[in-house]
Design a protein around this nucleic acid. Structure first.
Lengths: 134, 134
DNA sequence: GCTTGACCTTCCTGTAACAGGAACCCCTAT
DNA sequence: ATAGGGGTTCCTGTTACAGGAAGGTCAAGC
């Protein structure tokens, strides 16, 4: 199967698949004409990668997860450790974004948004603790 | 004031300040010895940038906000537009992360995390809709 | 006067995960 | 023969800096 079909199958851009080969996540065979020939196993790997990336795992985490996936003697604890760490990272990011959102939404709410220059958002950005502005 | 002091004052690494100069966000004067000389106005700008970046605004957004901040004839509507868009982006990111978190936390919860190879997390990653796994 | 250490300077490379595009090859249909 | 829709490699650009090399500067202490 050529890269175009594989791309559709996995829900990934062809460019991304070429990149995954370049960094050694997959190693599809080659036809006589130089075209990549994707096996069923390759397609499974690509789907796996697509899913893992979709859940926000980094490429390096994907590399680890893929290795565990292929290792029939793995311990589920090893998988869980990686996933748990990522889950924690996600929680941290959410908390950070929520903090930004909280501060920023207050500033936005207090801004008239008309044609006058007076703007609490800009005022908030020049002070150290914008929440203290009234 | 030298870059080290300015960095402390603004809560930014010196490296970041040099970068901001390189991309034209600030243009501090130079002493005879070539050292950057930060004025009070420069310090205000750096603090502004530090705050805006801390709220997640992109560098390009910061450039716009900084210009509005310096323009006494601005309309607060222009500022609000930028902030509102960013707020929306933040909301989108939070929603994305929460979706990942939801899926992943279910998978993690269903994984024993022991020394056996059987792992619902890996199973979830190879199917298209891991939530459907029981 | 000399050294030492803490500053400062520029310049180059690397990061994450690809996207865009050029220049070119391959295959099939008309 | 040509046109199109694949495929290939290679190079550049993206975001917002961090790390580090090589070297100039300044104030303090001996």
């Amino acid at each position: 199967m050529n890269i175009g079909q594989a791309a559709k199958h996995a829900g990934l851009p062809a460019k991304t698949i070429r990149y995954y080969e370049e960094i050694g996540l997959i190693t599809p065979a080659r036809d006589a004409n130089g075209y990549r020939a994707f096996s069923t196993q390759d397609l499974h790997k690509l789907t796996f990668l697509s899913r893992a990336r979709g859940l926000g795992f980094s490429i390096e985490d994907c590399r680890i997860l893929l290795a565990l996936w292929e290792d029939q003697t793995r311990s589920s604890a090893d998988v869980k450790r990686v996933a748990d760490q990522h889950l924690h990272d996600i929680e941290t990011k959410i908390a950070d974004l929520q903090a930004m959102h909280s501060t920023l939404s207050k500033l936005v709410a207090s801004c008239a948004g008309d044609n006058r220059p007076d703007c609490p958002i800009l005022k908030g950005l020049q002070t150290d603790r914008p929440d203290e502005l009234t």
